[in-house]
Design a protein around this nucleic acid. Sequence first.
DNA 1: CGTAGACCCTGCGCGC
DNA 2: TGCGCGCAGGGTCTAC
Length: 279
Amino acid sequence: MPELPEVEVLRRSLEPRLGQRQFTRVMVHAPALREPLDRAALAGFTAGRRVTGLRRRAKFLLIDLEDEATLVVHLGMSGRLTVVPAAEPLAKHEHVAFHLAADERYPEERLRLVDPRRFGLVFALPTAELPTDRHFKDLGVEPLADAFNADLLAAGAQKRSGPLKQFLMDGQVVVGVGNIYACEALWRARVSPRRAVSRVSAQTWERVVVAVRAVLSEAITQGGTTLNDFADGAGNPGYFQVQLAVYGREGEPCFTCGQPISRQVQAGRSTFYCSRCQR
DNA sequence: CGTAGACCCTGCGCGC
DNA sequence: TGCGCGCAGGGTCTAC
């Protein structure tokens, strides 16, 4: 399901539902997702602790708990993280669930991860170890932070070669820009995804920054979904509210010029673009 | 050192 | 109606 906007929408939807709730037991139903599930660590860092806050870094959801522990969830391609009644039957592909104690607001529930393709990831660790954890230590800047700017991209491009789209999707440069929004942002910036990063002007970098920010923040505002199987933390489905200009529109007319949208595979992923508008 | 490609896994839609 | 194929939002590893 996720790109950055979907994870951010999920974070916001879960925040009131999980805030101050106490984790009880963890139910691990699969041996591994992208990595093995460490039942002992998951239980040890969560059982009995209350949720103190929810954060996001790149496409990772960070659930901070009492006593300086953090539960980390990544949804991969097909993960859904939802809160359901504790007695809800086990869902197909429900690989792990964290039970939540009843309080004055909610009955006993469970926070469950359903992930058919199992590209997701769940682990827990001391909060202080997050920055040096191997999943986080090499991550680039957040695209909605001030540090994401034309100078940063131009500097990063000097150390690399290859096409612009792959550069934008490189998490060591900027995080959270996945295949859909990379395509959308480059269409909006009117620059070709195939353009070599060495041949991008300062002015164009500026347009790319503006476009990435706009595409992501609009998707968040609109409830995050471009994706047909997205659901927020309450299980509400997505609404296809985000109008996609190029992604999935091969052969359909460009909204700007009417030229049929092209599709080309780059690094094993489909790239959609307008060959007239994007140079 | 960077970069390109394979790979992890299941489900879905399409054409036959 | 059923089957096989291609394709899908992510990230990481290996071979060059």
